[in-house]
């Protein structure tokens, strides 16, 4: 009885972990977008620099 309860708790934990992973994914997406945005900005600044030298 107690162990099955424990299993259920574990199951709950695992589910929560999955929720966590998907949330993590969402955040990673945001992270990626932010990084891409940053990367683009840097690239833009470098292109600007090149263009000014051309």
């Amino acid at each position: 009885m107690a162990s099955s309860k424990k299993d259920r708790d574990f199951e709950d934990l695992r589910k929560e972990y999955e929720v966590f992973l998907s949330r993590l994914k969402e955040l990673e997406k945001e992270q990626r977008e932010l990084l891409v945005e940053y990367s683009n900005k840097l690239r833009e600044m470098r292109l600007k620099k090149i263009r000014s030298k051309l």
Partner: peptide, 18 residues
């Protein structure tokens, strides 16, 4: 610098996720 690359990089780092 493409975002795609960032993702690839991350995968390449072997981060276990999802």
């Amino acid at each position: 610098l493409e975002p795609k690359k960032v993702e690839t990089k991350a995968n390449a780092d072997g981060v276990k996720q999802g």
